[in-house]
Amino acid sequence: MSDNKEKTEVQQQSAILSLNDDFALIRAFNDGNESAFRTLVNRHKEKVRNLIYVTIGNADAVDDISQEVFIQVYRKLKFFRFESQFTTWLYTITVNKCRDHIRKIKLRSFFSPLSHEDDTQHPAEHHKPDFDIQEIVQAKIALLPTKLRIPLVLRDFEGLSYQEISETLGTEVGTVKSRIFRARETLKKMLQPLQKELL
């Protein structure tokens, strides 16, 4: 009951907020209105959290990373130049934080025993009897190279256009198109042996 009530409140808030655009909130915050930032966070936090979750494939670190994202936004918002959408800027920060995290994990796993790496990095590799399709797909996405993984998630999970992805990652649209195709191809091959379960 309480969950449903919360969701309803969120939907109501989103409906109200949709009347205001992000730029107005940023200006209000820069003029000293701290609550504008709170609204901005409320508006985008779930997208950011989920983007991080799907990108890094690990729920444990989502909270820390997403908070780091919004702390950086808080500190840098006065430098925002209103030349692109706020979400593009927000996703850029999020993606960079995800990249930093992935880099740290790789570095850590380099110095960790292999058995540990198997346990923590590829949980879906173990064919548990009561496996979850979502977990398997997410685990395979996590195995994709970062440069393929991020455009794929931004496109298929977040629903960004090629142009928005291009602006977020600072790459050409053609490159985005190519990487998204290659990501899908690679993921399809990874999921091939599990097609029966997935169907």
Partner: peptide
């Protein structure tokens, strides 16, 4: 493949995110 990625569920709503 696109649907498999797109159908991934997001995280549960975190009511205490802003507080923290």
């Amino acid at each position: 493949t696109k649907n498999q990625v797109g159908s991934l569920k997001g995280l549960q709503y975190d009511p205490y995110f802003e507080t923290r």
